[in-house]
Nucleic acid binder design. Structure first.
Lengths: 360, 360
DNA sequence: TTGTAAGCGTTATCAA
DNA sequence: TTGATAACGCTTACAA
């Protein structure tokens, strides 16, 4: 009952009564072989339950048949779905996925790429804090290892799969404007570590200007605020002139709804909220979320396709951005002219500590 | 500018002016070396930007320093978070994660394990349709490769990290009973491919009996119904005597709330709903979800710890189940005695096709 | 304390 | 059509 070692190609050759080169040729269909020989080898392989040893192959062929996939976190469904897309696209290609998460940390990002490189991945799919500043990523490119980014807007010398965050965010500004909002805000978590957020803000800002809206308030919140709606409520209370809020992702947008309720504000009557991503649960809310709908899974699939092409020597070329759509939902409406700021403040429950009450 | 090949230990030895064995000993701190030699080798390694080649090492040491992780899908946040937990626990251990998804398919499950085995993973962490029926998993165990399951209740000869689904589900029945419900139901998606669902139903069923409730209705729905609340509403309408529903996961529970709204039913007044998992977004709902709260991330961490222990020769031993807690939420209340079944039917919007209207 | 050499499983070269 | 044999990068006896 001792765990006997897996059969090697040598064992197959011995059983088939031939040299290992012949066995290799047959098993790989990489060279000539007589019908008789072919049968004997295949039979032997089957009988021994033979399968190639990946390490031996990798050593000789200098291909690990492994691709590295780095994302900020799998706890964020957007990235998890993207990885799922990568996985589904790579299925059957013979490539395996080595996964890694950085927790939105710049240094960890770079270290993770280094680790992937040490494991001699044949290609890399990544979403990072700052791909353009990662020395390890540069090294990868220098070694000729194809790199395919996900979610990042185009970056000098890098191929990426993305939705046009600037344009999509501009669309939100347009909707806000046509709904009659004049004073709007942009809510972000981890603004500094996410070029997506920054580009969304830029596009939103630009389009606000173009439409004659006031420059949007940039509200950057902490993990803490994102997690506890009461904390977020206290922050929101400081922006009571804002009638419409664009959250940099759906989860945040849902948290905003909760916080608004906490303040006694009605969504969308007292505050319009629009998210980004289009996560499924947004549809199921009592007030379905208005949002920019994207497909993270398609993002992963496309990134994987690109990489697969590159791995086949077809060259890695930048594709146009993936489409997005504006999901109507029910959290965007015209600002309520009857409600004054004072009304909203008056409705604020006393459970919010005075120290965090409206300042302006 | 040609992608020059990474330095090997041979290069290091040459530059340091020593034999490769010496270089290996120094770099691995695996044997004696004079201070002088040590410095020369380390310097050479640094200058060359040397790092070990994983394939060479794997081939020689017969350890790939890779662990395989198989889950049904990363599109399900519960599994994604678990993998995140595995990842975080394995960080710094030197082990890399090879990931694989089966899409809840039995055959794919087995094939995935086979692939992991071919990539000679040193250990396996998995959640499968039927671990006890997977020939490939048996093979892994025979080869002496440690296997650590996640989410599965204890299974003959397998070590698993889990929450006691039977007990947790029983707790839901208990709460239903003390709230005064007599006629309850269990809603599941993929009942046949999930032992978790089945065990939850079993525990729920057993405790319903113990409390003198009617045997719960088992409502197994399709992907289609789970995705479209109107479809789910039509199904729910057939169970109007049921006053409380236990959904086998939170996402389903949220869909039920949507469907109930579609039927004009109030949650929890007309229908109580309890979920399972404790996903974050449940707290943010307008009516926060009552649910069994678990920690998928902790699940992944514990499973990884177990495996790491086994990999260090400390033996793989079954641990007690992870704790769960009952999250109060606001979707469970006493059945409304004033509302009759007829009231609820009357409230049903005409948008539900007559063919799918209540049967009983 | 150091170096030589064998071998891990595979593929590719080159004769036969 | 076949089969020795030499790498691939590494670790580890075993000698020196």
């Amino acid at each position: 009952m001792l765990p006997l070692p897996p059969a090697t190609i040598k064992d197959v050759a011995r059983l088939a009564g031939c040299g290992i080169a012949t066995a290799s040729r047959v098993l790989n269909k990489s060279g000539p072989a007589s019908t008789d020989m072919r049968e004997r080898v295949e039979r032997a392989a089957r009988d021994l339950g033979f399968s190639f040893n990946a390490a031996g192959r990798a050593l000789q062929s200098r291909k690990s048949m492994t691709i590295g996939c780095l994302v900020p976190s799998l706890a964020n469904p957007v990235f998890a779905e993207a990885v799922q897309g990568v996985q589904s696209e790579l299925l059957g290609s013979g490539y395996q996925i080595l996964i890694s998460c950085s927790n939105y940390d710049d240094a960890a990002d770079n270290a993770a790429i280094t680790t992937l490189l040490e494991n001699s991945v044949d290609g890399i799919i990544a979403t990072m804090v700052a791909p353009d500043r990662s020395a390890a990523l540069m090294q990868a490119k220098q070694r000729g290892i194809p790199v395919s980014l996900m979610f990042h807007d185009p970056l000098d010398g890098m191929v990426t799969t993305y939705v046009d965050n600037f344009v999509a965010a501009g669309e939100v500004a347009r909707r806000f404007a046509t709904s009659g909002h004049r004073r709007v805000g942009f809510l972000a978590l981890r603004f500094s570590t996410s070029d997506r957020s920054r580009n969304r803000y830029a596009g939103f800002h630009a389009q606000c200007r173009a439409r004659g809206l006031a420059d949007p308030s940039l509200i950057e919140i902490s993990e803490e605020e994102a997690r506890y709606p009461e904390r977020l409520a206290a922050t929101l209370a400081r922006y009571r002139d804002v009638t419409a809020l664009f959250a940099s992702n759906d989860f945040l947008a849902i948290a905003v709804q909760k916080a608004a309720r906490h303040l006694g504000w009605q969504v969308p009557q007292d505050l319009s909220v629009v998210g980004f991503d289009g996560i499924e649960v947004g549809r199921l809310l009592e007030t379905p979320l208005t949002t920019i709908e994207t497909s993270p899974e398609a993002m992963g699939q496309r990134a994987a396709q690109s990489l697969l092409n590159a791995l086949q020597g077809l060259g890695l070329t930048q594709q146009p951005p993936l489409p997005f759509s504006f999901r109507e939902g029910e959290t965007l409406a015209a600002p309520n002219p009857k409600r004054t700021d004072d009304d909203r403040v008056a409705a604020q429950p006393s459970s919010v500590p005075p120290a965090q009450a409206p300042k302006q």
